[in-house]
Amino acid sequence: MATNQEEVSLIGAVGSPFVCRIQIALKLKGIEYKFVQEDLANKSDLLLKYNPVHKKVPVFVHNEKPISESLVIIEYIDETWKQNPILPSDPYKKALARFWSKVIDDKIAAPFFRAVFAVNDEKAREKNIEESSEALHFLENELKEKFFGGEEIDFVDIAAVFIAFWIPLVQEVAGFELFTPEKFPKLYNWSQEFLNHSIVKELVPPREPLFVYFKAKYDSLVSASI
């Protein structure tokens, strides 16, 4: 638990996979914190003050010291509160965890979003789906046990919450198939185990309201492109 002398808060938005990562890490560590809901359509002065470079959530604030970028925040949390380690202690395994987490962000999440937004460019959409799919295959081959952390979830599992929860939801909205049990059986089984983990289950947002929200956003995007 955070001591009485420590002020811990998380500036975030419900429905963000990157914010959800931090919530899972904090829950795993047993750290109490204040959640500050941010309106991304009307960004607050607090967000702009604490994250002037990216102007995005999540922002983690520990004793008035702000930290941005979800993977960086998780590492900070893991180094600051030693209980229930998230990153492996072995230097090589730690380096691998960092590597695969970056692969998730740069080679799976980024092209996936580009595919979603390419509503009137089928060629760009196919190219980005292919890039995401290729990286998912690499990740599928990397998964050796129940979780990436073995029997317990770790850094890569937390980073991959985007794959387990957000990709199936958003690909249904956008009308294409990237992540399916047929294409990625090991990753799909992992996703079910992960989403049923007591901590993860508690912290991922309710699916239906989020689906409605993304559907409205996507339909608006399609209408604007016609």
Results as ranks from 00 to 15, higher is better:
Lys82Phe: 06
Glu122Arg: 12
Pro181Val: 09
Ile11Leu: 13
Glu69Tyr: 08
Gly12Trp: 06
Tyr50Gly: 05
Glu142Cys: 05
Gln83Trp: 01
Val19Leu: 15
Phe138Cys: 11
Ile104Glu: 14
Phe211Val: 11
Ala160Leu: 13
Ser223Gln: 14
Ala174Gly: 03
Cys20Asn: 15
Leu136Gly: 00
Ala124Tyr: 01
Asp90Ser: 02
Leu136Thr: 00
Lys56Cys: 06
Tyr76Ile: 07
Pro66His: 05
Glu32Ile: 09
Lys127Leu: 13
Leu195Asp: 06
Leu47Gly: 01
Val57Arg: 11
Leu221Thr: 06
Thr80Lys: 13
Asp78Leu: 03
Glu131Ala: 14
Asp219Asn: 15
Tyr188Ser: 12
Leu136Phe: 00
Tyr92Ile: 06
Leu178Asn: 05
Asp39Arg: 04
Lys82Glu: 10
Ile108Leu: 05
Phe148Val: 04
Ser220Ile: 00
Ala124Cys: 12
His197Lys: 03
Tyr213Asp: 11
Thr180Asn: 11
Pro181Arg: 07
Phe211Trp: 14
Tyr33Lys: 04
Arg21Ile: 05
Lys49Ala: 07
Arg207Met: 10
Ala216Val: 07
His137Ile: 10
Thr3Met: 14
Ala41Lys: 15
Pro185Asn: 07
Glu152Arg: 15
Asn84Leu: 00
Phe194Ile: 10
Trp166Asn: 05
Asn141Phe: 02
Lys123His: 10
Glu134Trp: 11
Asn189Ala: 15
Lys217Cys: 09
Leu28Met: 14
Phe214Gln: 12
Glu142Val: 11
Glu32Val: 10
Asp78Ala: 03
Val212Glu: 15
Phe162Gln: 12
Ala13Arg: 12
Val222Asp: 00
Ala174Glu: 01
Ala25Pro: 03
Glu126Met: 06
Ser133Lys: 11
Leu221Ile: 09
Asp90Phe: 03
Lys201Ile: 08
Pro91Trp: 02
Glu208Trp: 12
Val8Cys: 11
Pro111Phe: 06
Ala41Tyr: 12
Tyr213Lys: 14
Glu6Ala: 09
Tyr76Ser: 01
Asn120Lys: 15
Ile74Met: 10
Phe18Gln: 15
Leu203Gly: 09
Leu187Pro: 04
Lys123Thr: 11
Ala164Asp: 09
Asp106Arg: 14
Phe99Trp: 10
Asn128His: 06
Glu140Ile: 08
Trp81Leu: 00
Leu169Gln: 02
His137Val: 08
Pro66Met: 07
Pro52Leu: 04
Ile167Cys: 05
